[in-house]
Amino acid sequence: MITLENIDIAYGSTPVLSDLSLHVPEGEFFTLLGPSGCGKSTLLRAISGFVRPSRGRVIIDGRDMTALAPEDRGIGVVFQNYALFPHLSVYDNVAFGLRVARTRKKEIEERVSEALERIGVADHARKKPAELSGGQQQRVAIARALILGAKILLLDEPLSNLDAKLREAMRDEIRDIQQRLRLTTVYVTHDQAEALALSDRVAVMEAGHLCQVGPPRALYTQPATPFVCAFVGESSRLADTDGIAPASFQGVAFVRPEDVHLGEKPGEGWVTFDAVLDRAVFQGARVRLLLRRGDSLLLADAPGYFDDRAPGETVTVSIHADKVHRYPGDPA
C-alpha cells in the first residue's frame, strides 16, 4: 500500500534521512519507533507530502505520489497536538474536509453527525476545541482525519499529550478503529511499550536510518543491534562475558531482567554467579533488583514477595547462555 524507495531528505544542508526504503502492506498497523530527533516525523511527513524527498520515490496504492501536494493525496493525518482549528466548532472541524470538497450540505450533515455520534462527542458539537478534554480532542482529530474516507491513516505521537490512564484507553480505541476500518496505519512514537502493544510490525529508527523492521515479538526476542536491544524493552549490559560466551568472543552482550534467575540452576547452558544487591525496588507485582557484579549493573526481576535480603548481601543468580544477546564488534 505504501512503498518508499531510496528516500533522501535533508533540511537545508543537514541530511535527516538517507537511502531509506520501506514497505507497508494494506491493512497493516505499522509503527515507527525511535528516540526524539531520529527522523520519525520527517519520514511520516514524506508519506503525507509535507516534505519532499530530494531523491527516491513515494508510491502509494501503486501510484507514484512523490511530487503530489499533500492536499491531493487523500491521506488522513492526526497531529501530535491534534491541530484542531481553534476558531471552528467541533462540528465544523469535522466538516472541514467535506466543505473544501464542496459536498452537498445535506450529506455533510449526515456524515458529520454520524461521525460525532460514533466517537461520543455529539453533545459537544457546538463547542470550540479548547472546551473539550484531551481525549475528546483526540477523537475529534481522528474523526476529522477519516471523514473523507481515507484508507491510510498517519498518526504522529498522538498520545503524548494525554495522561497515563487515558493513554492506554485511547491506545485501544485507535487499534479498534484501525481494525474496524481496515486502515493502513503508520504510527509514530518514542514509547516502546506503545509500539509493542499496538503494532503488527515495528520499525526501530536511529539517527535517520532503520535498524530493524519486524513484528513486536521478533524485535523483543531477537533484537538485531545493541541499540534495538537497549531501546526495546529493558536490558543490562554484561561487562564480563566469562562462561556466557566463547572465550574468543569480542563484543557486547545484553540480558533482559526476566532472564536473570535467582539461585542456582543446574543443567546445560546455565551460568551461575554471585552479585551484590545494591537496591530492591518494590513495584507491586514484582521486585526489581539492582545487582552489582564487578563494574556492571545487572537488573533482575524477583517475585513480589521477595523481601528477605538487605542491600549489601550477596545474591546468587543464573543466566541461560541462549538468553544472552551477543553482538560482535568493538566492545568499547
Binding site: S48, F50, A69, P70, E71, D72, R73, G74, I75, G76, V77, F79, Q80, N81, A83, L84, F85, P86, F96, G97, V100, A101, R144, A145, I147, L148
Partner: peptide
C-alpha cells in the same frame, strides 16, 4: 499543524 491539517483534508 492546523495549516497542514487543512491541507491533508484537501
Amino acid at each position: 499543524s492546523t495549516v497542514e491539517a487543512a491541507r491533508s483534508l484537501g
